[in-house]
Design a protein around this nucleic acid. Structure first.
Lengths: 164, 164
DNA sequence: GGTCATTATCTTAGTTACTAAGTTAACGAC
DNA sequence: GTCGTTAACTTAGTAACTAAGATAATGACC
C-alpha cells in the first residue's frame, strides 16, 4: 500500500517492510498449497471453529453461498474438507477438515525451517525481552482486530463509535 | 492456514493470531480502496521502486504481461497510475503513480487512527523495550524474506542451498 | 544500410471463480 | 396441513487471469 503515513516513524513500529513480509510469506504458503486467499480463509475458519455449515463459511469469508458451494467442491476434490450431513437439520451441510489433508504433508516442510529460524532468532533475547515482544504482539493484534472491524464499517454504513 | 506446527510454542512468537490479524487488516484496506491483492502489490512496487516498465511489474507480481496490461488499464482508469513513454526505449511503457491518487484521500483515514492506537500502545513501553521490539521485528522481517524466497524455489525447481 | 534474433507490450481466445437471481427441499409456527 | 422462512445448490453473466500469438522497436552483426 503506497504512502502509508507512518513511514519514518520508528516509535510506532510495525513498519511497511514487516507487514509486507508477513503478507508475502502468507501468500507464498498458499501458492505452495495451491490455495487462493478465499480458500485459505475458509480452512482457517474450519480450523478455528471446527465443522460448520456452508452458510457460516459464507459469512466469515464474505462470499455468497453460491461461491461457497463451488469452493467446497474444489477443497473436497483436493482432499482438504468433506461434507457431512447435519443431524440437526437436513437442509444444511456440515463442512469438516479431513483428518488427513494435504497441508499436513506440506506445512511441516514450511513451518519447520521457519520455526528453527525463529528459535535461533529468539535465543538472542532474554526471557524478559521475549515477554516484552510477546506483549507488544498481543496488544498489536488487538489493535489490528479493532481497526479491521472499523474499516469494514467505514466501507459500508455510517461509522460507528470510534474510541480514537 | 490450519495446523501450523508452532501452535502453543510461545518461545517462537509470531503466532497465528498476529499474522492472521495483519493479513486481514491488509485485505480490509484493499477492499476499502477497491483493490485486489495483485493491484495492491503493483502499487507497492511502484511506491518502492518509482516508475517502472510493465514488464518489471509482471516480474514482481508474478503475473503475465497480458494480465499487467489489463491491470494498468484498470488502475489508470481509477486514477492510481499513468502510462508514460519511455524515452530510452520506444517499445516499453513506464508506469508511474499519479501525484494525486485516490489512496491519498483514503489512507490517512485508515492509518491515522491506527498510528494513534500504536502511539498509545508504545507509550507504555520504555525506550529500551521499544528497541528490543524493533530489533525483533527487523530480524523477523529478514527471516520471512528468506523463507518466502525458499518457498518459491520449493514450489518450482530443486531446493537451493538451505542454511537451516 | 540491411538482416535477424531478441525484447516489450498489447491482443485474443479460453478458463476460473465470482455475483445475483432463482430453484429445491426442509424447517417451524400456527 | 399450510405458509413464510431458511439452507444449499443451480444457472447465467461478469471480471481477471493464462497461454499463445501479433505488432513494433531494439541492437548486434555483417
Amino acid at each position: 500500500m503506497p504512502d502509508s503515513p507512518d513511514r519514518g516513524n520508528p516509535g510506532v513500529l510495525l513498519g511497511r517492510e514487516f507487514t509486507s513480509a508477513v503478507v508475502m510469506f502468507h501468500e507464498a504458503v498458499g501458492r505452495l498449497l495451491g490455495l487462493s486467499a478465499a480458500e485459505r480463509k475458509c480452512l482457517d475458519v474450519l480450523d478455528r471453529l471446527g465443522p460448520v455449515t456452508a452458510g457460516r463459511i459464507a459469512e466469515h469469508t464474505g462470499l455468497t453461498t453460491g461461491a461457497i458451494t463451488g469452493m467446497i467442491d474444489r477443497l473436497a476434490r483436493a482432499g482438504y474438507v468433506e461434507r457431512r450431513p447435519n443431524p440437526a437439520d437436513r437442509r444444511s451441510v456440515l463442512v469438516a477438515l479431513c483428518a488427513d489433508n494435504p497441508s499436513d504433508h506440506v506445512l511441516p516442510k514450511v513451518f519447520g525451517p521457519l520455526a528453527a529460524d525463529m528459535t535461533e532468532l529468539t535465543s538472542g533475547f532474554t526471557p524478559e525481552q521475549l515477554a516484552t515482544v510477546a506483549t507488544y504482539l498481543a496488544r498489536t493484534t488487538e489493535v489490528l482486530h479493532y481497526r479491521t472491524e472499523q474499516l469494514a464499517h467505514l466501507a459500508t454504513d455510517r461509522p460507528p463509535a470510534d474510541k480514537g
